[in-house]
Design a protein around this nucleic acid. Structure first.
Length: 436
DNA sequence: TGCTGTTTAGCTTTAC
DNA sequence: GTAAAGCTAAACAGCA
């Protein structure tokens, strides 16, 4: 392999020299890794970090032999059902599954306790750091999921399928340490994504549930945004037909010189009261919407988990009498057992909610499938064997519909948080362009 | 006052 | 090459 990647620095990051992948040829499966990574777009890491990859040896990233402390990190127990041979597969399956395996271990009475595992992990991390031969992994690199994906994950894992903005923030930060920094930057993007994308529907609070901000849920027809449940780049953006028609109409009117309010079809006359849509309007009527996003006037018509589960093809919101959720927000609900510590993520949401992930995520193909980048794979211990099956079948998960997003999340062995967090240790040069 | 939400703009990356 | 998807920044308004 003689790949040479030019790295164009992002503002704020130092320029990096071209990285010779030859220096990495000793890494297991690095050839296919780089092929997969070459087209990743949305993830990033500091160019300085990728530069240091050139200094890596065979043993750096994936050679488990260079991580003599793995057993001490509790990974043996975690990987019990996978077998240590699967550790080698961390390259190709991503440690998200490894993380789930950890969760499986935690749920296994025979496995060591969480506290013991954490102590062991901390101990091992120290040893790893002390090991001069160990090359650090690229911890806390940007996950390969788009913001839309992350928002969708947050909503989907919520028992009520409805979360507040702050809940989304918390979910993301708890699951991905990368997002514990530069919060202003990505949180702005989250807000933008919520407002801009038709797939997210705003649900006002009810008077009995005062608080800041509205709830956000998924448009009932937006269930199939992510093919095979793979939460990477969407093939096609979900557009609400009615809103899209409105946009087209506005655009057409603008193009043919028709007058608009304030001269701009996109600017609402501030003096004109907003015509708040009825719940039916918000999805099914042609009533104008106050903005790009749809807003449900009556929260009691919010899709319940059952409705979400029934998926895009089965239901439209206006066709059902929906029950008000018992808890408007899983995060805001003080009764929720765990407020998203990383450990809970490692244990899988089923452990947190008491629900099987499959039932949480519904039977829609988008969520029922166990793509390695599906939310199931991220948060569920139930699918830890999926990638082994993929590999046994010669299935290349990075060469399917979403092949361009072939990032490989790995266990963050070097994380001060412990090995239960999802990080991404292999990144393409292209990713460096998006480094934060 | 800070958070939430909307909107616009410019840019990069990817798919076709 | 082009369109679409996605990211980031920023301005602004409304609200708790």
């Amino acid at each position: 392999m003689a790949n040479t990647a030019m790295i164009s620095p992002k503002p704020g990051y130092p320029a990096a020299s071209p990285v010779s992948m030859n220096t990495m040829t000793g890494m297991t499966g690095v050839g296919s890794m780089m092929n997969s990574y070459s087209s990743m777009s949305t993830t990033g890491m500091p160019a300085s970090a990728i530069t240091s990859m050139s200094g890596m040896t065979h043993t750096g990233m994936t050679g488990m032999s260079t991580m003599p402390s793995m057993a001490g990190m509790g990974m043996n127990a975690g990987m019990g059902s996978m077998g240590m041979s699967s550790m080698g597969n961390m390259n190709t399956m991503g440690s998200i599954n490894g993380m789930n395996s950890m969760g499986g271990a935690m749920n296994n009475p025979a496995a060591m306790s969480m506290r013991y595992a954490q102590a062991q992990a901390a101990n091992s991390i120290d040893r790893i750091r002390a090991d001069k031969t160990y090359r650090r992994s690229y911890t806390h690199a940007k996950p390969p999921y788009s913001y839309i994906s992350l928002i969708t994950m947050a909503i989907q894992q919520s028992p009520q399928k409805m979360v507040t903005l702050s809940d989304i923030y918390q979910f993301i930060m708890d699951l991905f340490p990368f997002y514990r920094q530069n919060q202003q930057r990505w949180q702005n993007s989250i807000r933008h994504s919520l407002s801009f994308n038709d797939c997210f529907v705003k649900v006002p609070r009810t008077p009995d549930r005062p608080g800041k901000g509205s709830f956000w849920t998924l448009h009932p027809d937006a269930g199939n945004m992510f093919e095979n449940g793979c939460y990477l780049r969407r093939q096609k953006r979900f557009k609400c037909p009615k809103k899209e028609a409105q946009r087209q109409a506005q655009k057409a009117a603008g193009d043919d010189g028709q007058p608009h309010e304030n001269g701009d079809p996109n600017i609402r006359d501030p003096a004109t009261p907003v015509s708040h849509p009825t719940p039916t309007d918000s999805v099914a009527s042609d009533a104008p919407l106050p903005n790009q996003n749809q807003q449900l006037e009556h929260p009691q018509q919010v899709p319940t988990p059952q409705h979400q589960q029934q998926g895009a093809t089965l239901h439209k919101m206006e066709n059902h009498q929906l029950s008000p959720p018992h808890s408007m927000s899983s995060y805001a609900n003080p009764s929720r057992p765990i407020a998203y510590p990383a450990a809970s993520a490692a244990m899988g949401m089923s452990g947190m909610t008491g629900m099987h992930p499959a039932s949480m995520l519904g039977q829609h193909p988008s969520f029922a499938h166990s793509h390695p980048f599906s939310i199931n794979s991220i948060i569920s211990p139930e699918h830890k064997m999926d990638m082994k099956a993929y590999e046994a079948l010669g299935y290349n998960p990075y060469n399917m519909g979403m092949q361009a997003q072939g990032a490989r999340p790995t266990m963050d062995y070097n994380s001060p948080m412990g090995p239960g967090e999802v990080t991404y240790s292999q990144l393409t040069p292209a990713q460096t362009n998006h480094a934060m």
